[in-house]
């Protein structure tokens, strides 16, 4: 196994072009575990941690551009006001040690359907900035996941950053696990309301081969944008449509029936919280 260490972004892109078989390492919280458990031996590792520009975030035309090396801990500490959905999801990842190392880019690179950042990224309409020696591609996150643990990156591409729109309304994330922390989601759900456009974003985790939106539920809620109190019938229907968008399996963490049921409950509850915040004029 070769160990490549890039010190600049340009060098990283060149190395990846020369060695498309190299596995990038950011926080290593997925990569190192897989190696330790002997789930395949990468031909080469490409260490991105020395690349300083990856560890920065910036504001660009209403989006936060989060560098691939920004950790969950920093998202929680520095971006919770502007990206509340992503920050809530980040708080549920692993343990302090994992949050100090792990990144959203790594979560995307692993592309596990259970990854916690996916629902808020889907709900808020994030865009993945992929780059190679050939140039930059902007991939809407909904197009990024292509299968179980598969994604849309070409073999010579790397994730440079993730562009996440600054909140334009309440955002909530909910996750069910088999214990209270350090746990892979049985299923998860993210909602983002855009109070200006009266549009709705959703993201479902761990209940289909890939993270996915509940498109019909979004359209239904936008079409029934609640006036005044949240109509329980609307909330119920929203939950049903979210559940209907899922295609879960049975596994050791939970049955498919439970996942469908729980998604409907989480959709109703997060909608309730979001609606409450809207009515409170933006205070949760």
């Amino acid at each position: 196994m070769d160990f490549l260490r890039a010190t600049t972004w340009a060098e990283a892109l060149r190395m990846k072009a020369d060695r498309p078989d190299a596995t990038p390492v950011q926080g290593g919280t997925d990569v190192m575990v897989e190696i330790n458990l002997d789930k395949g031996r990468p031909k080469a590792l490409l260490d991105l941690t020395p690349v300083a520009e990856l560890t920065e975030w910036s504001v660009e035309s209403g989006n936060i551009r989060i560098g691939a090396g920004v950790t969950y801990t920093r998202i929680i500490a520095e971006l919770a006001d502007r990206l509340p959905g992503l920050a809530q999801a980040s708080r549920t990842v692993g343990s302090p040690q994992i949050r100090n190392r792990g990144t959203v880019a790594g979560n995307l690179g692993a592309a596990s359907p259970a990854g916690d950042s996916h629902p808020p990224l889907l709900a808020s309409g994030a865009i993945v900035e992929a780059e190679s020696v050939d140039g930059t591609r902007m991939i809407p996150v909904g197009d990024f996941y292509t299968g179980v643990k598969r994604h849309a990156l070409a073999s010579h591409e790397l994730i440079r950053a993730i562009h996440v729109p600054v909140k334009r309304g309440p955002q909530y994330f909910s996750k069910i696990g088999t214990r209270n922390a350090m746990v892979i989601a049985v299923c998860s759900f993210g909602i983002a309301l855009n109070a200006e456009d009266r549009t709705v974003g959703t993201g479902i985790g761990s209940a289909a081969p890939t993270p996915r939106r509940a498109v019909e539920a979004e359209a239904f809620l936008a079409g029934n944008w609640p006036a005044g109190d949240l109509d329980p019938a609307v909330a119920k229907r929203f939950g049903e449509l979210v559940a209907a968008a899922a295609a879960p399996i049975d596994d050791v963490r939970g049955s498919s029936g439970y996942r469908v049921h729980a998604l409907a409950v989480m959709a109703r509850r997060t909608l309730g919280w979001a609606w409450q915040e809207l009515r409170n004029g933006g205070r949760s």
Binding site: V33, R179, A181, M182, I184, V252
Partner: peptide, 24 residues
């Protein structure tokens, strides 16, 4: 958990064999 067909213990790591954490 023992796999019914192979007799392999299917969750022989702390990632898969759950024990309580502080929050529990």
């Amino acid at each position: 958990v023992t796999d019914k067909d192979t007799g392999r213990i299917a969750n022989a790591t702390f990632g898969d064999y759950l024990i309580p954490v502080n929050a529990d």
